[in-house]
Design a protein around this nucleic acid. Structure first.
Lengths: 113, 113
DNA sequence: GATACTTGTATACAAAAGGATACTTAATTA
DNA sequence: TAATTAAGTATCCTTTTGTATACAAGTATC
């Protein structure tokens, strides 16, 4: 394998890693929702059209495991759970922005056919 | 729904549109492969570790339908098929770059724990 | 006292995505 | 003549994702 090819393989690997962590229909929307002020389970759930409890619950766990959000138990009466985006999670902005603007462009392209 | 909320919903929609078109493990790697010089089915297949014929075939169709690549039949003896990235497909660079660099960063973060 | 809200979990099921393997058809090469 | 290449397709199977529904335990409301 040439050096070029090797570099290409690593590029692929990095992209696949990213896709594993934040790919799919829901993960970035969830992070953006939390970032934009929705802290509690039902708030997040209501802010994202069509998401179900089961999926939201699973995705939140996945994001927590990958250090992108935190789950905080607030010892009040009654106990509350609040989610927050970590500093590390904020770094996703650099991905979310291009994804959003590309999506907009693409819709125009497809409609304009 | 406030204006803020509406804008947020549209943001989500755009991101989900993008994910539908270029999400998953294979689509961006395939485009990069073609872009970097692999034109023929088996070339592309060999350049991407672990991809199977079936998946490659499906993904190529999906990408063609979304105007990101073209499939060209070269009338030679024997007939050859060559894939190429469209000008429109080149616009994905703005997404592929951040995905790659985020993946690299993330790997370091996870290893460094 | 009965009912609803919160933050999920549990269960069962359906649909979509991904993977393994074999096969096709025509041409080329050994 | 046999094996190989090219560009996939066909079949079957597993995994992931998504949907629907019910349930829990405590608090709040009617």
């Amino acid at each position: 394998m040439t050096k070029e090819e090797k570099r290409f393989q690593e590029k692929i690997k990095s992209i696949q890693d990213t896709m594993f962590v934040i790919g799919g229909k829901w993960k970035i929307p969830i992070i953006l929702s939390v970032y934009s002020g929705n802290k509690r389970f039902n708030e997040i759930s209501n802010s994202i059209p069509k998401i179900t409890n089961r999926v939201l619950s699973k995705e939140l766990k996945h994001l927590e495991e990958n250090l992108l959000i935190t789950r905080n138990v607030i010892e009040d009466y009654p106990v509350r759970i609040e989610y927050a985006v970590t500093d590390y999670g904020l770094g996703l902005e650099e991905i979310a922005k291009p994804l959003e603007s590309w999506g907009k462009k693409h819709k125009k392209k497809i409609i304009g056919k």
